[in-house]
Design a binder for these strands. Structure first.
Lengths: 343, 343
DNA sequence: TATATTTGCTTAATCGATTAAGCAAATATA
DNA sequence: TATATTTGCTTAATCGATTAAGCAAATATA
């Protein structure tokens, strides 16, 4: 019935014969409004089924109570878990989130940022696309003056808060583990060097090999897009080598999955002929046969910290960006694909 | 520098010594504004780096250009694919989407709807939580008069557009396949009957068995939450039967995965002792060993159709809800877990 | 009792963009 | 040439909520 005619504070004001200002204040529990009036306003609001118009209050207050989230993809468990935890924290403080994904495309990422700024979000929490090298679109966010928090894939150059794990150290943990398993010729299918986290993993890989006095063979270090498809391609490339590796450390579970499929196809014994370690601890790591050793990235904690970091900014008068790095320790989950001793 | 002082149409108007009305019209390419003025306005807007204030225009026009999406979970490939495709279509028409997930909880779903309505979305595309039986919160959306489109998990009682697959028919396809494989005692780990899609799958299962003159044993029909965890529990229950099934049709890949893990644990030959079929064709269906036969649900098409259905409504003067059912044919992807003949 | 403070509201401006109504100048038509 | 129409803008109201400024009545303080 009464479909179109939405209830506004004006309707409440008219019903009680008071001003809209009084209604607004009563609804916000202003101390200068009498309890009697407040009660009456709340009652009428309830009776009329009043729903505040968010656009109007957002326009007036300058706060949309929306936070934008940019992830490279939503169909990875890592990112969807981060998102869930961001949402949980922010919902509790009256914020809603707008989720966008770049699909690893720089162009899409730019479009996402434009869309989010257009929607007048109060802040942005982002993890960058693989393609992203130029950071101008992120500088745009900073220029507007709303909080910008990065996680997982961020860049030092941007000089904003960052939450992630210690990638350099994680590589050490993985190499230490593989060496302890008796592996001596360890390959690395890594991401692109221009992305900080992948660069750190590569550096960690090289330094850890050196630490163990193992040769660092150039043909064993591969840069990849880290998709399942490219994992297959790169694993095949490693198998084509005259001198094959006895272990492969892959910087993403998705690519590790592709590698595993090739290894199974070729009937290569995993872990005894070639041990395999992934990164990210996606749920399927536990589902495949052999189950995949992988690094757990604490997605839930990262999401919660990112959200809380944003909330910190909202309490400040002015946004002063700072590279506040929060680095968590990742945990290696050892499974069949790298456990030669069978326990 | 010029951080806080955002550029508005007033700034453009002042720069050119014309009215804000003229600027607004020029930016919207109104035919009553001269080309000369339009060019000047566009130039100044560009120079000043003008970004329209979405909240203001949304408030005035009554259109937020936001669409809410409610899914039970985002970490399933099915839902994330639907979302991606909704987004793709809607972005093309200038809409942004707000993604929320109920986490299968009725309470969370209610909260999501309130949050979306509060944000003044122009429409909602939803798939219901497992827990949802009462539909009052969805009626609220209808009362407000914005488009409501459901997919996958919808209810006839709601009488709104629905996009999904033919669940009843899908069960027939699966049973036909299992019977062709020589299975005679087929169990069904299904969802809750109160959810239409699961009820249809159950009805299809029962009718298909009858069609093949197979006994429909009550102990072989199980209602489940269809999580991986419950898949394990229910598979164990089936194995405890005196008269075990020789095939299990599970209404979700997640639960099928749990079932498969139990079967592997007990060293039961899949598919030869017990054949297994899942539903949803999640990516891991292809990753596990043995790979899992499953129903492909056309997530991309469903997302695109849902978005286009919403867009249809926006072209109409008034929203007239109608149960416009769009039913796609699901496709059975036969893999190792049910392929006894080996090809 | 006279003055100061507090209480409980109202008035009017405002956030930025859009739009109905209208007006003067330019152009078209009779 | 006189009138009608079109062009290109302006003025002012509006979307709904918030808030600074202010006022009268009630209460507190000197």
């Amino acid at each position: 019935m009464a479909k179109k005619n939405k209830i506004t504070i004006k309707d409440i004001a008219n019903a009680l014969n008071i001003s809209t200002a009084a209604v607004s204040k009563a609804l916000h529990n202003d101390s200068r409004i009498s309890e009697k009036t407040k009660k009456a306003v709340r009652q009428v609001a309830k009776n009329l089924n009043y729903q505040p118009n968010h656009l109007a209050s957002a326009l007036r207050s300058g706060k949309s109570k929306l936070v934008g989230v940019i992830v490279p993809k939503t169909n990875s468990n890592y990112f969807s878990s981060v998102i869930q935890n961001i949402e949980e924290i922010l919902n509790g403080e009256g914020y809603n989130i707008i989720i966008t994904h770049s699909n690893e495309s720089y162009k899409k990422e730019c479009a996402n940022i434009d869309a989010l700024l257009f929607t007048q979000v109060d802040g942005i929490i982002a993890s960058m696309a693989n393609e992203t090298v130029n950071l101008e679109h992120y500088e745009k966010i900073k220029n507007i003056g709303i909080p910008l928090i990065t996680f997982d894939r961020g860049e030092n150059d941007l000089n904003v808060d960052y939450i992630g794990i210690d990638d350099y150290d994680s590589s050490h943990t993985i190499i230490d583990h593989l060496v302890a398993q008796g592996c001596r010729r360890i390959a690395h299918i890594g991401g692109y060097k221009h992305t900080r986290i992948y660069n750190n993993r590569i550096r960690g890989y090289i330094d850890a090999l050196q630490k163990h006095n193992l040769p660092s063979d150039k043909e064993l270090l591969i840069q990849s897009s880290l998709t399942t498809e490219d994992g297959k391609v790169q694993m095949q490339r490693l198998l084509n080598l005259k001198n094959r590796p006895d272990a492969v450390y892959v910087a993403s579970d998705y690519a590790a999955l592709g590698a595993l499929q090739i290894l199974k196809e070729k009937n290569i014994d995993v872990p005894n002929t070639i041990a395999l370690v992934g990164f990210g601890n996606e749920p399927f790591a536990n589902m495949v046969t052999p189950s995949l050793t992988s690094m757990n990235l604490h997605s839930a904690r990262i999401g919660k910290i990112a959200a809380k970091t944003f909330l910190e900014y909202t309490k400040k008068e002015k946004v002063n960006y700072s590279l506040n790095k929060i680095i968590l320790d990742a945990k290696l989950i050892v499974r069949e694909s790298s456990n030669k001793k069978g326990i």
